[in-house]
């Protein structure tokens, strides 16, 4: 009986941690996460509510010790090919990229919702139209550090994949990763052979190899 009661309490907290954002959840966040983290942490919003739709990845170029800059090297491509060719426990290395890309804009639910509200208000209000892209809520220290960590890990990963791109076999001295987001044609265009994907690029800053160690 005691066991069943403990079990009930445990799953009540676990279920509550998975509930949508609510005032009660914000209030009790500290209490709940201090019990669940790190060993009982869970997240079951698998491919939901909005699943990944786009082809995302990185390409990267390197600076060599003689000062020359290499062409862009496809970092994600070979890994995806490897995963696609192996259906029996494929290597998870490709996740270092997809995880890093997600981490670039990592935030928490509350901030995401506040930003979304701000954006809606801005687009309704025509007088602020030219300032629409001005970020109203500045990035929090947590978001900044997540972004910097992600930049570093993506750059570092690219560097480890590009050991031999420089002439003379010396390792690159710096690396720059470029993230691409290829938005594939939507459902409505699925039968249109002319439909094109839209590619957005986002350049990460140059990172020195020594700083990435």
């Amino acid at each position: 009986m005691a066991g069943a009661a403990l079990l009930g309490a445990h799953f009540f907290l676990a279920a509550f941690s998975q509930a949508p954002l609510s005032p009660a959840k914000i209030r009790l966040h500290g209490l709940i996460s201090s019990y669940l983290e790190p060993y009982f942490t869970q997240n079951w919003s698998l491919f939901a509510p909005n699943p990944t739709k786009d082809d995302e990845g990185i390409i990267a170029r390197a600076k060599c010790s003689d000062g020359s800059v290499t062409d862009f090297y496809d970092v994600t491509g070979p890994l995806i090919k490897e995963t696609q060719e192996d259906r029996f426990f494929p290597s998870r290395t490709v996740r270092l990229v997809s995880n890093g890309i997600n981490q670039l804009n990592d935030s928490d639910d509350l901030l995401l919702r506040l930003r979304q509200k701000e954006e809606e208000k801005n687009s309704e209000d025509s007088t602020t139209k030219d300032e629409k892209h001005k970020r109203v809520i500045p990035l929090t220290p947590y978001e900044k550090s997540q972004h910097e960590d992600a930049e570093r890990s993506l750059s570092r990963f690219s560097l480890t994949q590009m050991h031999d791109v420089c002439p003379g076999g010396t390792g690159p001295t710096a690396v720059q990763a470029r993230m691409y987001i290829k938005t594939l044609p939507p459902w409505s265009q699925r039968k249109n052979p002319e439909a094109k994907s839209k590619v957005d690029l986002y350049d990460l800053p140059w990172k020195k190899a020594v700083d990435l160690q």
Partner: peptide, 17 residues
């Protein structure tokens, strides 16, 4: 049950789902 119900309920809220 928690895993399946939570992942199901989050999917119900998604536009493409």
């Amino acid at each position: 049950c928690l895993v399946y119900v939570v992942s199901g309920l989050y999917k119900v809220q998604g536009e493409v789902w």
